[in-house]
Design a protein around this nucleic acid. Sequence first.
DNA 1: CCCCCATGTGAATCCATATTCACATCATAA
DNA 2: TTATGATGTGAATATGGATTCACATGGGGG
Lengths: 198, 198
Amino acid sequence: MTQKMNTEARREQMASAALNLLAERGSEGFNIADLAESVGLVPSAIYRHFEGREDVLDVALDLFRDRVYGLVEAARNEAQDPLMALELLLTRHARLIESGGAVPHIMASMSASEEHAARRAKTERIFAGYVARVESLVREGQESGQVRSDIDPTAATLLFVGMIQPAALLRHAEGERFDITVHAARVWDLFRRAVAQD
Amino acid sequence: MTQKMNTEARREQMASAALNLLAERGSEGFNIADLAESVGLVPSAIYRHFEGREDVLDVALDLFRDRVYGLVEAARNEAQDPLMALELLLTRHARLIESGGAVPHIMASMSASEEHAARRAKTERIFAGYVARVESLVREGQESGQVRSDIDPTAATLLFVGMIQPAALLRHAEGERFDITVHAARVWDLFRRAVAQD
DNA sequence: CCCCCATGTGAATCCATATTCACATCATAA
DNA sequence: TTATGATGTGAATATGGATTCACATGGGGG
């Protein structure tokens, strides 16, 4: 038999594995059998740790939220100023996508499901929370004078948030030929020109 | 019995209805029973016009491609110059989202499916084609001197393409409180500042 | 005007997954 | 060291959709 594992550790392992699967296949392609296999167990074992599929998705979403919000906080803490924090955040998103942790895919695929309204609502709340956090960086930038004060902070925020998503899609389509890191640097220049105080 | 209908007309009606369903629920939530109901028929009737679910999706995707590409062409034809064409395109995307024809949802949810690699590949090709069309507008803008020539056209294009997507998500989350049309106008200003020749 | 075949129907059937259950086995705490 | 309860297993079972099929029927060409 496979090694037994401490409850909490196993649960986290499963949630993390679930998130990986979600990143590559979206919520549609996500299934219990694959999840079980990815942690080296049998499907029924999943039910020792979760109520069912929907519960797994719910917990994976929690993990996703924590990681994404953590990304923003880390960028804020490590950067000298708000604008630099945004740049750092963008760079890290790019790296994340490059390594397969497809954030946009997850957001998009989870929020599309009309049934399971709870899951959808939760996804949207997570997204809104992410936007709010980025927006606070933008506002701080305005207060510190780095960011023009005559622009709408929400608009600037959504412009920022949208910079990576299409790139992630195109990367799938074009593969290696498309370098996300380079792209990130280029769009950052554009974003900076759009919002920075001269 | 429900009125019988000419083959071609019925097929188109079904494809169009399928696209609507896709827009609101994504490919995960899409099912034959709902499609049948939305055209006032019984599930098995769908099979008189399509090979099966995957075939429906395929044809709906064709329709989607035509409509989206058509949007770009229309904008190009109606506008005086490339930059104006982009602005028009943005405005129309916004309107489309407002009326439920959620373009980004479709793209994202279709491209997430790992299985049915064909469908995924097709979605990505459609997206790439869309990007290419927008990019040609950007390049024309550079040639005509409206757009700065020192920026990478692909980067500018993806920045443009990303402007609407997050807004669409946020709209779902915040509902009426969030006005996409107003948002579109604001991000357009930012985009213009980023790319326009002074 | 009537026939014939494509369209529409409802009742099966199939299938892929999720989920449950009875049983086995390990980890650990007393 | 051993008892015990939680973890893992494999074989059912349940379920929701897709798909098939035998039959009904309406509309357009002869």
